[in-house]
């Protein structure tokens, strides 16, 4: 496979043509903010936070879905991009009912971290205070749609990794919401395996374990890479287990 060289933020970097700008940037210690991206899941380019400037391209491109090309000149952190990122996080903050002080994920929340990163100190648009629902019918977990930012990580992990496809999105535009099965209560879902992957990958406190109270819900996402790698490399051959 050909090795390509390019420039990201004036740094010469290299990678292969199957890699994305985001992967290569992170390998070289260049941080690009993301929200819908998660290592191990298919990228959808939905949150628009990882948009970067590419010389010669007419539009900004999401780093998570853009493949490397020889000689690309990329800028990831210009004044303009910073401004757009702040406005997008501002949009997300105004869209839900986010009350950090009483949230299970306080101090462990990717949205909260992002707000600090992009320097969002004040929301200029009116909060929308949408009427969202909470579903605590599952025996172990709760979904509080007030805190959902529609990144669709739960939908993708359930479909791609667990293979259950319990979660999906209903409605459109501002009325979109995450639903289980055909909009039944989560506890009545016949497809859910209660594996808990969706809870672990949720960037906010929208999905959490029962019993967690304020600031207690810490998420882990590293497990995803192990599972996906092991599956792709067929390390889960039953014969290997018996050899030991």
């Amino acid at each position: 496979m050909a090795i390509l060289t390019l420039t990201i933020d004036d740094q010469p970097v290299s990678g292969t043509e199957t890699e994305t700008l985001l992967e290569v940037a992170r390998q070289h210690g260049i941080e690009i903010p993301t929200l819908c991206h998660l290592d191990g899941l298919t990228d959808v380019g939905a949150c628009r936070l990882c948009l970067v400037e590419i010389e010669g391209a007419s539009r900004l491109q999401p780093a998570c879905t853009t493949r490397l090309q020889e000689g690309m000149v990329v800028r990831t952190n210009t004044e303009r991009l910073q401004r757009y990122r702040r406005t997008i996080v501002e949009m997300l903050a105004s869209e839900g009912n986010h009350h950090c002080a009483v949230c299970v994920s306080n101090n462990h929340c990717e949205l909260q971290d992002l707000a600090y990163t992009v320097g969002l100190q004040y929301v200029r648009v009116p909060y929308l205070y949408p009427a969202k629902t909470l579903d605590a019918t599952h025996k172990d977990f709760v979904i509080d749609r007030d805190r959902c930012i529609l990144c669709s990580r739960c939908v993708r992990v359930c479909h791609e990794v667990e293979g259950a496809h319990t979660w999906d999105i209903a409605g459109r535009g501002i009325g979109c919401e995450i639903i289980s099965d055909l909009k039944q209560p989560w506890g009545q879902s016949t497809t859910c395996t209660s594996c808990g992957k969706c809870v672990l990958v949720c960037p906010t406190g929208a999905l959490f374990e029962k019993g967690a109270t304020v600031a207690e819900m810490e998420k882990r996402t590293e497990f995803l890479r192990y599972i996906v790698n092991a599956r792709q490399r067929r390390e889960w051959n039953p014969d290997l287990l018996h050899e030991e």
């Binding site: 949150c47 949009m91 535009g173």
Partner: peptide, 22 residues
């Protein structure tokens, strides 16, 4: 545009609501 936004990306989903309200 607000009513027809699919809701996938944040700027369009939320931005069209605020632009309309303004």
């Amino acid at each position: 545009s607000r009513d027809e936004s699919c809701g996938k990306c944040a700027p369009c989903r939320v931005g069209t609501v605020h632009m309309h309200d303004l």
